[in-house]
Design a protein around this nucleic acid. Structure first.
Length: 643
RNA sequence: GCCGGGGUAGCUCAGUCGGUAGAGCGACGCACUCGUAAUGCGUAGGUCACGGGUUCGAUUCCCGUCUCCGGCUCCA
């Protein structure tokens, strides 16, 4: 008996029936055999040891592919659980999946793990790896499995839920054994523990069983695993790089902002350079909105609780709001968590005609949200922040055009700030929880989808993830080190126009309800600054840099000339600083570079004589003796606003 | 909010097995007047997060609060 195997390149080979993935890999080449960790049979990931008895396609999964690392990490999670169960008597283990860049496993143990515990566990894992224990697959019936895991309540719960899904009786679960350790698992796994050549435990943390905060809190250990030590080292270096970019650290080093504990958690103060950066961004935002037919409004930070009642916030969002302030004996006020009700009141302040639609009200609106203390993270998740917020009131028939227009505008803005890679999520109707007609939802979803397709934006559909009042698009960007950040959100809203009974007069003088689009492009100015800082590692594009050039006089006698050059450059609207401190030239250059200034000028005797300066642009070599007019032209060009 | 770990000079950190503390950088002063990533010397600077308890004595041990970090949950 023979089987015919088709490979990814289309070639075919015949093997004796019962051949294993490992043997197939070996038949192709010894290096492939060595790198193989699993095999995909007809697209299904499978152990290398599994016998192949039917014709089909085979793809060898190697340890240096994403899928291969997935297998490594899954196996590493097993070995970690094995080590923990060896070392901690009575430990219960829950689930341990591979994740991006690593794996974790959740345990219930008497005491939370300390860093020393992690060292012990890592050492035990190394011993298990050295023992070269083979992973063996076994299939058990549900009752058998329940017997094997009788003292493991979490495993029991998983098996029982498998049973429910598959229907009682007859269903099987697979388990993997290595040595005395056995775990419930779909697989596949590496052939043996010795394939785990580069594993490191990273940290421990609390985590709720099944992600439910009402259930047991377990102790999770995170680890990472790679195909070799070099890949592990590269990963750790990447983490370090990300740490260097941390906007909280850079914000302090570059004197942009701080979070004084006296203010309370999640509240930032902006220092002069950060204030300038914000202003540059806000000016850009106002300018571009005005150029795109938005109208700028301004609204207060508090409003009567009645308003939040009418908008539905007190019913649906109360725990995210700061508590009320009762004034004049009876009237309660609340800080605003959103700007929409104010913009709605502006819309409703007089009767509106179809001729004024779409009406686009824009505000850099500061809102306050009482985020749970554990979620606050620098500027990324704060309790007070400013949204570049707009509410667009339009006729139902115009939704599609307006959304397309809006998505183009969004991408233009993000590109202006140096982002080049975009992805989107389209969140659709939750069939359990929504208001408005199906017809309207379908229309809005189609309009959003069309806008995404017209903009040629790759997107995922998040089925049922829309808010109860309408579907939405979230736009994500990729930063310089590949991380994904959600920035813009475009949300169709059927509820608020209803809540506030908004109407406009049509061309037949009938009354219709407008549709509202709720959108923020940068999301929040604070968060946006944080993402920019991390994206550029603090080295902001010249047009955003609070200081665009530093002038370094070589000696005190050159200070006057430095000031003249500074004035000449300031006449070009450049932001210039003269560093006249009593330090060496080298020290001043170093400071300017460390502070990520886009340009450094050095002026000395020869420059005074010739009307020149030494020019050193970020990332380039110095050029001496550049005419000041040329410096001005170069810098003005480099610092030009995107629009 | 939950679990774990922190909070010592402006910053980064060391230290005190309970007897009120130290470095580097920064700041300030003096000398140097310097040509592309740290000139030298000196000086000042701390209620050891805050409140309470134990103790002859607490920065150190205990409790509480605030706050930060890493996760979990959450992110309309």
């Amino acid at each position: 008996m023979f089987v015919t195997i088709t490979f990814p390149d289309g070639s075919e080979r015949r093997y004796e029936s019962g051949v294993t993935g490992a043997e197939i890999a070996a038949s192709i080449g010894p290096r492939l055999a060595k790198a193989a960790v699993a095999v995909k049979l007809n697209g299904v990931p499978t152990d290398l040891s599994r016998a192949v008895t039917q014709d089909g396609t085979v793809e060898i999964v190697t340890e240096d592919s994403e899928e291969g690392r997935h297998v490594l990490r899954h196996s590493a999670a097993h070995v970690m659980a094995q080590a923990v169960l060896d070392l901690y008597e009575g430990a219960k283990f829950a689930i341990g999946p591979p994740i991006t860049d690593g794996f974790y496993y959740d345990f219930q143990v008497e005491h939370p793990f300390t860093p020393e515990d992690l060292d012990r566990i890592e050492a035990r894992m190394a011993a298990i790896v050295a023992e070269d224990q083979p992973f063996e697959r076994d299939e058990l019936s549900v009752p058998e499995a329940l017997e094997v895991f009788s003292d493991q309540p979490f495993k029991t719960e998983i098996i029982e839920s498998v049973d429910e899904q598959e229907g009682a009786g007859g269903s099987e679960v697979s388990v993997y054994r290595n040595h005395a350790f056995v775990d419930l698992c779909r697989g596949p796994h590496v052939p043996s523990t010795k394939r785990l050549k580069a594993v490191k435990l990273m940290r421990s943390a609390g985590a709720y069983w099944r992600g439910d905060e009402n259930r047991e809190q377990l102790q999770r250990i995170y680890g990472t695993a790679w195909e070799n030590k070099a890949a592990l080292a590269a990963y750790l270096e990447r983490l370090e790089e990300a740490e260097k970019r941390d906007h909280r650290k850079l914000g302090q080093e570059l004197e942009l902002y701080s979070f004084p504990s006296e203010l309370g958690s999640g509240l930032a103060v902006w220092h002069p350079k950060g204030g300038l950066l914000r202003t540059i961004i806000e000016d850009y935002s106002r300018r571009t909105h005005l150029a795109h037919e938005y109208e700028i409004v301004a609204t207060p930070h508090v409003a009567k609780a009645d308003l939040w009642q009418q908008s539905g916030h007190l019913d649906f969002y109360a725990e995210g709001m700061y508590p009320g302030m009762v004034l004049d004996d009876s009237t309660e006020y609340r800080m605003k968590p959103m700007n929409c009700p104010f913009h709605i009141l502006i819309f409703r302040s007089r009767s509106r005609s179809y001729r004024e639609l779409p009406l686009r009200l824009f505000e850099l609106g500061t809102v306050y949200r009482y985020e749970r203390s554990g979620v606050i993270h620098g500027l990324m998740r704060a309790r007070g922040f400013t949204q570049d917020d707009s509410h667009i009131f339009c006729e139902e028939k115009d939704i599609a055009a307006e959304l397309q227009n809006l998505l183009d505008f969004t991408l233009m803005v993000l590109r202006d700030f140096g982002f080049t890679e975009f992805e989107a999520d389209l969140s659709t109707k939750d069939p359990e929880k929504y208001i408005g007609s199906d017809e309207l939802w379908d229309k809005a979803e189609d309009a959003l989808r069309l806008a995404l397709e017209t903009a040629d934006l790759p997107y995922d559909v998040a089925e049922g993830e829309g808010a109860f009042y309408g579907p939405k698009i979230d736009v994500h960007v990729r930063d310089a080190i590949g991380r994904r950040w959600q920035l813009s959100t475009l949300q169709v809203d059927f509820a608020q126009p209803e809540n506030f009974d908004l109407l406009y007069a049509t061309d037949h003088n009938t009354r219709e309800r407008p549709v509202m689009i709720h959108r923020a492009l940068m999301g929040s100015i604070e968060r946006f600054v944080g993402i920019l800082i991390e994206h550029f590692a603090g080295a902001l594009p010249a047009w955003l840099a609070p200081i665009q050039a530093t002038i370094v006089p070589v000696a005190d006698r050159h200070i006057d000339y430095a000031s003249e050059v500074a004035d000449r450059l300031r006449a070009e609207s450049l932001r210039i600083e003269v560093d006249s401190a009593d330090d060496t030239v080298g020290e001043k250059i170093r400071r300017a570079i460390t502070q990520k200034h886009p340009a450094v000028l050095v002026v000395g005797d020869t420059d005074i004589a010739e009307g020149t300066a030494g020019l050193r642009l970020r990332g380039e070599d110095e050029r001496r003796g550049v005419k000041v007019d040329e410096v001005a032209a170069t810098l003005a060009d480099m610092c030009r606003l995107p629009r």
